[in-house]
Design a protein around this nucleic acid. Structure first.
Lengths: 209, 209
DNA sequence: ACTTGTGAAATCGTTCACAGCG
DNA sequence: CGCTGTGAACGATTTCACAAGT
C-alpha cells in the first residue's frame, strides 16, 4: 500500500516537465537536476521532486534525472506512450485551426476525423483530416476506437454534442465552447475558455500596483 | 485594513460566474441563489459565497443575488467594465481563428491589430482586423494604448515577441505557444497549452479504473 | 560535495455550520 | 423560513530541511 492519488496540480505540471525535457533532449542535454528544471518553469526544485515522487523514483542522488529516461517515464504516466485517436467536432475557424496544427502527433495524439452539420463542409478534408456529417460520429468513434474528443462548436450546440459523444463511450472531452457540460461519471471534461483567460489578465492588469 | 489578496482559483471562478450570470440574464432570470449558481458549475454553494465574499457583499439574505447587479460587480472586479484593446501576434491558423472569433467584444475585449513577419500577410485584414508588420508593433501598441496581447507564433519565436511586447509596456500576455516565457515583474502571463490539456485527459482516461 | 527522496511543518484553499438579516 | 456572509475546522498542496545515496 503505497501511492495516494496524486494532487491534480502535480499532474498538470507533469505536462510542463515533459515539454521542457523534450526541448532539452532536442538540444542534446542528457542529465538535468530538479533545480534546473524548476528554474525554467518558475517553480521550486522541491516541487519538482515532490511531483515526480508521487509516481516513482526517477533520479539518481548526486546526479539528477536522465532526460530521456524521464521523458519516457512521464509519457507512460500520462498515457501518451501509446497514440490516442482524437476527433474534432465543429469545423469553424477554431476547429479548422486545431485540425491543421502539426504539434499533436509529437505529443501522442492523432486527429483521425472531424465532424460538422454543414453540407458544404462534409466530405472535404481539413489538413489531412476528413470531415464527416455528425450523424456518422458514433460509427467512426467505434470503428477507430476513439476515446478523446475536442468540442469546437457554438455553445448552444455543445451539450447536444456532448450527449452524443458520451453515448458512444468516449472517455475525455476538451471543450472550447464557453459552457459547462453535463457528463456521466467516467467522462472527464477539460475546459479551454479563452475569454476567461483574457479576463484573468484584465484582472491582474487592473489590480497591479 | 480589510481585504486579503483573494486566492487565484477564486478569481478564475469569477469568470465562470460571470458567464453563467450572462446566460441567466439572457434568459430573463433576475435573481439567483448561491446554490443555483453552484449547481450549474458543479461546485458548492459555500464556495460561491466565499469567492464573492473576497470582493464585497453583493447578495441579500433570504433572497439571493440580483443577476444584473452581480454581472456589473463582476465586470468591475475583473476590469472588463471598460473595453481593453488587444493585439494578436502571429496570423497562422490559430491567430486567424482568434481574430475571427466574435465572442470577445461581448466580454470587454476589442481586437485592434494583428502582426506578422510574412510579406504575404501584412497589409491585409483578418475578419475586421488589420495585419501589420511586426516592426510596427511598438508604434501601434502605444498609439492604441494596448495593454493585453495574444501570442500565436511558433514556440521558437515566442520569447523574442515577448521581449518586444514587454519593451512597449504591455501588461498581460496570453501565450498559445508551448513555451515558458520570461517577463519582467508587472507583466502577467497566461498560458494555453492545448496539447497539455489533452495530456490531462489522457492521464484520466488511462488511470480511470 | 552534490542532488534526490521524503517525512514534517507551514501555507493555502475549501467546506462546515451557524449567526444575522430580510 | 430562506439565504447570505463569515469565522473556524478541515483538507490539500507547497515548502522546508535533512537523511541517504553517489
Amino acid at each position: 500500500m503505497k501511492s495516494q492519488a496524486p494532487p491534480s496540480p502535480a499532474v498538470k505540471r507533469l505536462s510542463l516537465y515533459l515539454r521542457e525535457l523534450e526541448r532539452l533532449s532536442a538540444e542534446g542535454v542528457d542529465k538535468v537536476s530538479s533545480r534546473r528544471l524548476a528554474e525554467s518553469l518558475h517553480i521550486t526544485d522541491a516541487q519538482v521532486r515532490k511531483d515526480l515522487g508521487y509516481f516513482g523514483q526517477f533520479g539518481r542522488r548526486g546526479v539528477g534525472y536522465g532526460v530521456d529516461r524521464l521523458i519516457h517515464a512521464l509519457r507512460r504516466i500520462l498515457g501518451t506512450d501509446k497514440t490516442w485517436n482524437v476527433i474534432v467536432v465543429g469545423t469553424g475557424d477554431l476547429g479548422r485551426a486545431l485540425l491543421r496544427y502539426r504539434g499533436f502527433a509529437r505529443r501522442g495524439f492523432r486527429l483521425v476525423a472531424a465532424f460538422d452539420v454543414s453540407r458544404g463542409k462534409v466530405g472535404k478534408r481539413v489538413g489531412d483530416v476528413p470531415v464527416y456529417h455528425i450523424d456518422e460520429l458514433p460509427r467512426v468513434v467505434r470503428r477507430a476506437k476513439v476515446k478523446l474528443a475536442v468540442i469546437a462548436v457554438p455553445p448552444e450546440a455543445a451539450q447536444e454534442v456532448t450527449d452524443l459523444l458520451c453515448s458512444t463511450g468516449i472517455m475525455g472531452i476538451l471543450n472550447f465552447a464557453p459552457t459547462t457540460l453535463e457528463t456521466p461519471d467516467g467522462v472527464t471534461v477539460g475546459l479551454v475558455d479563452i475569454a476567461a483567460h483574457l479576463e484573468q489578465l484584465s484582472f491582474s492588469a487592473a489590480n497591479s500596483q
